[in-house]
């Protein structure tokens, strides 16, 4: 264990532990947009910037992203200095200009006192802030169907060459983990459409209610060893089935 200081408070941490994790454990609030516990930090949104220094740095300090900066002995972390707050505010202004329609960004901007953004504003329909949570989730945890394509201002999240993906399993993890609800999907009856591909939701073998795409069942089956068909019962029927099983047990 090592000791460091966050906003004047001495705290203990493991060497190399990321500052954000330590701060959150200690109840120090640091805003994030691209952080998701399930995936490696990326450092893309720059909202979690904090100022760090050390006693031996002779007054010199630097801004770092708390999400991936490793803790070291005697580090002095300040999470709300003027420079930090100003940088976060500027970043929010840039994001507002990109996604003027996003509730989340507008709320955060208000918190940082950004009442009159001055930069030229983009299209209202744009919601994606390119935090890369969806792509990291899909690539690291699911099947890697989507990625960041193009670069710079042209950058966007999409399937390779924006073609229909044959590895997507329609699990919706990308859409559901998006902090700004930028990924569109549609689910009507037994059909679920995402990234230009329509998946058939297998009807519950007992009641016919939609369960999950066959592709997701196959992917799960490979990971867990359960039979694909075992996934095709809806929650309600499974619970009822469980209840019936109990009925057959003698008390």
């Amino acid at each position: 264990m090592i000791e460091l200081t966050i906003d004047g408070k001495r705290v203990q941490a493991r060497k190399g532990e990321h500052l954000l994790a330590i701060a959150r454990r200690e109840g120090v609030e640091i805003p994030t947009l691209c952080h998701h516990e399930a995936v490696e930090p990326s450092g893309a949104c720059r909202m979690c910037m904090v100022e760090v220094t050390r006693p031996d740095w002779e007054g010199w300090s630097k801004l770092v992203t708390a999400c991936n900066f490793p803790a070291e002995e005697d580090l002095i972390v300040r999470t709300r200095t003027d420079k930090v707050m100003q940088t976060r505010k500027e970043i929010l202004e840039l994001l507002i200009a990109r996604t003027p329609g996003s509730q989340l960004i507008a709320e955060m901007a208000r918190e940082y006192g950004l009442d009159h953004p001055t930069l030229t504003v983009g299209e209202l329909s744009e919601k994606c802030i390119l935090c890369d949570i969806c792509t990291r989730v899909c690539q690291n945890l699911v099947t890697g169907a989507i990625s960041r394509i193009n670069r710079g201002v042209e950058k966007e999240v999409n399937t390779p060459f924006a073609e229909v993906s044959d590895v997507c399993i329609g699990c919706l993890a990308c859409a559901k983990s998006c902090p700004t609800d930028a990924i569109e999907f549609k689910q009507v009856g037994l059909e679920r459409t995402i990234w230009g591909r329509t998946f058939d939701l297998v009807p519950c073998t007992q009641c016919g209610a939609p369960t999950l795409p066959k592709e997701q069942a196959e992917w799960l089956s490979e990971r867990t060893g359960m039979k694909v068909e075992e996934y095709f019962v809806c929650v309600k029927c499974k619970a009822a089935q469980t209840a019936r099983t109990y009925e057959n047990i003698a008390w």
């Binding site: 989730v137 699990c171 993890a173 369960t211 999950l212 997701q216 929650v235 009822a240 089935q241």
Partner: peptide, 13 residues
């Protein structure tokens, strides 16, 4: 990540 794989996997509902 809200993929609901656990929902599909629990055999007891």
């Amino acid at each position: 990540i809200r993929c609901h794989s656990c929902v599909a996997a629990c055999p007891f509902g």
